[in-house]
Write a protein that binds this DNA or RNA. Structure first.
Lengths: 214, 214
DNA sequence: TATAAAACCCCTATTTTCAGGGATGTTAGT
DNA sequence: ACTAACATCCCTGAAAATAGGGGTTTTATA
């Protein structure tokens, strides 16, 4: 009996590549391909009882991204597996995916063989994450350990965000309905906590932590 | 007579996709595929007289990127065309490519039909840039116009870079062997020029312009 | 060779930040 | 009930940054 697969990827050419790989395998039956998650979601809704073994998905797609799709898939039927195939190799993304309980991740520059191995492994009930991805994940966890010692409170985040937006202490105080002295204390604490020297350092931290854009 | 094509892309699966598209076209003869530019460069060196009509290449590849490859290709034989197929859609990259005189650019999420059209157009001697890419390019040129009114001198860049690195005015003066007053003047001018309010604004600008990392 | 732009320097006065203290009330967890 | 963490506020003095002026000299280039 064949496994039922669904593929979602907005890169048409890449999709063709995947198909050409999978079509030469006789165990896989490709039910559907789509260039965004929404189509897949609709299909799943219309066919609630169809057995779907694996969904191969990209992360960034128009309309509905891979993470949202994964959530929908798992809610419909926990036994449907998800394999993410993407070019994103940033730690945050990977972290995010693992937390969302995807069954595997293979980068797009992986070999054909690895992809097939990933699919087989996942259909066999195990997880599959390529070595590259595992390394990024683990390295990130280690370095996070150090960073997480520095944990800002919500108020501190409020203040540093406004500082990075070029407001003066007085202006921040006015906006938050606090005393100027309070903001000064926060600024002082932030400088000490984050091991920086001045506003420039605070601003860089705010950007790194994405409290402000660009 | 067939056209001779070479393809470079480090995404194996994508390569397969491209191949499956091109193999079904009888006019194209694929001489070589490789996952980085170096292999291609070596091939070109070994076979200096072979007629190569088109090189399809990704931008970011290990060992040798698409831009360097393009340069080598054009130096060897000006009549060999280059089509870039990549996921990069940032304005800088596109600008860079056009300046390096590639013959076309199609994003990886393009349809199969567009790719074929691009290839045909380029082999016909014209340039082909997908609409999406053209838009990004033009939009960038327009917005650059506004930005380029703000042009920093080298010295100003030196100073803002150091400011963003959290050095004080006095420290910057010492490092650059200048008077503290000079640095103060530069800071003042920068704040006025860049329309920001303080160090935080200068720091953000320095990051945006990539004068400093993160 | 004008002349504009860049690089450099100085001054005053005000505001803001930084560094160092200390303090109080509230909240959440042990 | 105790304690730690948090949020809030205050003070002083020094250092730095900001805002507003003013300059000269060097360098590129039209």
């Amino acid at each position: 009996m064949k496994y039922n697969l669904i593929i979602a990827d907005d890169h048409k050419m890449f999709l063709d590549g995947l198909l050409s790989i999978l079509n030469s395998e006789k165990d896989y039956n490709i039910l559907l391909t789509a260039k965004d998650g929404k189509h897949i979601a609709k299909y799943l809704e219309i066919n609630p009882d169809e057995k779907i073994d694996l969904i191969i998905t990209d992360i960034s797609m128009p309309e509905m991204d891979g993470i949202s799709l994964n959530k929908i898939v798992k809610e419909r039927n926990k036994s449907t597996k998800t394999l993410v195939v993407s070019m994103h190799t940033d730690a945050e993304m990977i972290d995010n995916l693992i937390e969302h309980d995807v069954d595997g991740y293979v980068p797009k520059n992986a070999e054909k063989e690895e992809l097939l191995k990933a699919i087989k492994t996942i259909l066999g009930g195990e997880k599959y994450f390529s070595k590259e991805i595992k390394n990024i994940y683990l390295e990130n966890k280690f370095s996070k350990k150090k960073q997480e010692e520095i944990k800002l409170t919500q108020r501190e985040i409020d203040v540093i965000t406004l500082i990075a937006q070029e407001f003066t202490t007085q202006e921040i105080a006015d906006q938050l309905f606090l005393s100027k002295h309070t903001i000064e204390s926060y600024r002082k604490n932030l400088i000490a906590k984050l091991n920086v020297r001045n506003l420039a350092g605070l601003t860089k931290y705010a950007i790194k932590m994405k409290y402000i854009k660009s």
